[in-house]
């Protein structure tokens, strides 16, 4: 059974006097453990697709089956609960809480969803994930003290804290330089490989899409092409091949002093 099955999804909304048909009968299956990249120009409907997939929005008509259950008619609270349990979000602009430590940012989804985890367990989970994305030494850093790549890694850790089935990444490398982008893609590829997480990544860059297993092109609210990636890029290998940086970026001289 496919993790996600979209059947004839339609979504239209009004902007002033104009009715915009963002999705016009879109159908798509996403298998468990796959890494699907959705590409499309702006206005193609890919953002609306993302919102519907992420249960932030409801389709006007059509069906959305998540793990075989039709969730297209779920009300706000049930969608919130599903978002909390089954979906992790990674955004282009990271969306971390300002002036809040990396640890607390990662713990955020654990505060919701009707579960009362003891603080010690919340900390342990968040710490484990931050270590997994290579930020074990920056648990107490606030977003302002982290580079863009580091912030995005915190966001990925946050997306994973509830062990979701699905990770939705909306232009996750849009604000990052190419080297950091490779690092982020390496983490996503590793998640799919090692944890069996399903990733749906939205991008307008075709070369980023080639890190996935499948590229779905959206245009005018429909899927216009859906092809497996032939020569899949391997982010880990690419990063290893990159020339080493002149010096490791350490924004805090105090910490460097302690280590030296």
């Amino acid at each position: 059974m496919a993790l996600i099955r979209l059947v004839d999804l339609r979504k239209s909304y009004r902007v002033g006097d104009v009715t915009v048909h963002a999705l016009r009968g879109l159908s798509l299956d996403v298998e468990r453990g796959s890494f699907v990249c959705v590409v499309g120009a702006s206005g193609s409907g890919k953002s609306t697709l993302m919102n519907v997939l992420g249960l932030l929005d409801r389709p006007t008509s059509g069906h959305y089956f998540l793990e075989g259950e039709d969730v297209s008619g779920f009300d706000k609270d049930r969608r919130a609960h599903l978002r909390n349990r089954k979906i992790g979000f990674v955004f282009q602009n990271f969306n971390l809480l300002p002036r809040t430590s990396a640890l607390e940012n990662v713990e955020l989804p654990l505060l919701y969803g009707g579960r009362a985890l003891p603080p010690a367990e919340r900390h342990a989970r968040a710490r484990g994930l931050l270590e997994a994305v290579g930020l074990g030494s920056r648990l107490d850093h606030t977003p302002q003290q982290l580079s863009g790549g580091q912030q995005q890694r915190v966001a990925i850790a946050r997306a994973l804290v509830n062990e979701p089935e699905l990770l939705l990444a909306d232009e996750p490398t849009g604000n990052l330089d190419s080297r950091t982008s490779v690092e982020i893609m390496e983490i996503l590829q590793r998640l799919v490989r090692e944890r069996g997480i399903t990733v749906v990544l939205i991008t307008h860059e075709h070369d980023i899409a080639e890190y996935g297993t499948r590229v779905v092109t959206v245009r005018d609210g429909r899927v216009t092409s859906d092809t497996p990636v032939q020569n899949r890029r391997d982010a880990a290998a690419e990063r290893a091949a990159l020339p080493p940086l002149e010096l490791e970026v350490e924004p805090e001289p105090a910490e460097a002093g302690v280590e030296a």
């Binding site: 992420g54 932030l56 706000k76 609270d77 919130a80 609960h81 978002r83 909390n84 349990r85 979000f89 969306n95 809480l97 300002p98 955020l108 989804p109 505060l111 919701y112 969803g113 946050r158 509830n162």
Partner: peptide
């Protein structure tokens, strides 16, 4: 506003 959006996205209900 963005913080609220994020909290909603990660599973906060309106009443939260």
């Amino acid at each position: 506003t963005r913080e609220i959006g994020l909290r909603l996205a990660v599973g906060a209900r309106s009443r939260d």
